[in-house]
């Protein structure tokens, strides 16, 4: 097991390095550079101004030198400096990480809990009206663009009904502390987390339902039934446990997006997280921030792929790690 993990980690390091080089080249291939964007926003510029900016940003160096400087820094976990924001990239990401983790983790748990429960319920009532309702809703949320759901949710629950804050991380200027602050953040969290969670909930519902139905037709379930076990025990111990494998695969994918996967939601709800940082960095051509977020996201995906593989083994003893 330990050797397996170590081998995977070494492989991951090489993949990460390749991703870095690829990202760096792709970003630099996009038209425009951060100096031009900054000068553009100022509405006036001259050659000296642009040269000053490019020198400050290190953009006056040839491409391979810039790449080498970046890689050298990255392997020492130095993600560079954002001239646009006047801060080291690591600090920027670290600063935004809690907000993003709170949002994506909440969405993750919401979707996995509700998705699996609803999927199991739908499978158990296959063909009845409650199954139809659950399946239809799941299809609807699966097909609706996140951006639109987010805006409509804000309009309905915030503007029209006034139940929940429509954007932001906490009430600005309220200076809450302790429990009051947690409650305030919680209220702000409801809409973005639900919006972000809806899509994955829908996938989990469909996946769980299909998988449950498939497993429940297998011979060992018939055997269990013949043994006289209660339907509840059969569903839990025999069907669900076997039906969970594809769900875990999917959960691994979703968990991999835990850092960078909330771009739209964070933008619409003005959630001060990493997804938004990335989104703004793209339009500002803030290379270092963008590369930093990609780096952390890629690392997360690799990490969660590894964790998924390990969870497989725990859930399904039939799966063995082969060296």
């Amino acid at each position: 097991m330990v050797r397996f993990i170590l081998a995977r980690l070494v492989k991951a390091a090489f993949i990460l390095l390749a991703i870095l080089v690829l990202n760096f080249s792709l970003i630099h291939a996009a038209p425009g550079d951060p100096a031009a964007v900054m000068a553009g926003e100022a509405g006036a510029t001259d050659e000296q101004f642009l040269e000053d900016l490019r020198r400050r940003f290190g953009l006056d160096q040839p491409f391979h030198v810039q790449l080498w400087i970046y890689i050298k820094g990255a392997v020492q976990l130095d993600l560079g400096y954002s001239y646009r924001r006047g801060m080291p990239v690591a600090e920027l990401i670290w600063d935004r990480l809690p907000a993003t983790l709170l949002l994506t983790a909440t969405a993750f748990f919401i979707s996995i809990i509700f998705g699996v429960i609803a999927g199991v319920a739908a499978a158990a009532r296959q063909g009845r009206w409650s199954d139809s309702i659950i399946s239809t809703l799941a299809l609807l949320f699966y097909a609706t663009p996140l951006f639109w759901v987010a805006l409509m949710a804000a309009l309905l629950f915030s503007v029209t009904l006034g139940w929940l804050p429509g954007f932001g991380y906490e009430t600005v200027g309220a200076n809450h502390t302790g429990f009051a602050r947690a409650l305030d953040i919680g209220r702000h969290l409801v809409l973005p987390a639900t919006t972000l969670g809806l899509f994955f909930t829908a996938i989990y519902v469909r996946m769980t339902r299909a998988s449950m139905l498939e497993v429940s037709r297998l011979d060992f379930v018939k055997t269990a039934r013949a043994k006289g076990l209660s339907p509840g025990v059969i569903q839990r111990r025999h069907v669900l446990r076997n039906a969970l494998l594809p769900v875990i695969t999917l959960a691994g994918l979703q968990a991999g997006q835990i850092v960078g996967g909330a771009v739209l939601t964070e933008t619409v709800f003005a959630w001060p997280g990493i997804g938004r940082l990335m989104f703004e960095a793209i339009s500002q051509r803030d290379y270092n921030v963008l590369l930093g977020v990609f780096f952390v996201s890629a690392a997360m995906v690799l990490l969660f792929n590894l964790i998924t593989d390990i969870v497989y083994v725990i859930v399904d003893p039939r799966i063995r790690i082969t060296q």
Binding site: L151, A154, L155, S158, V159, G162, P165, G166, F167, G168, V172, G173, T267, V268, F269, A270, R276, F279, E280
Partner: peptide
């Protein structure tokens, strides 16, 4: 006494911010 400049990246959300009195 004080001035807050809110940073809200999406145009539609900025409209919502005004509509909800934030």
């Amino acid at each position: 006494d004080e001035v807050y400049y809110h940073v809200i990246p999406d145009g539609a959300s900025r409209a919502v911010a005004f509509e909800t009195g934030v």
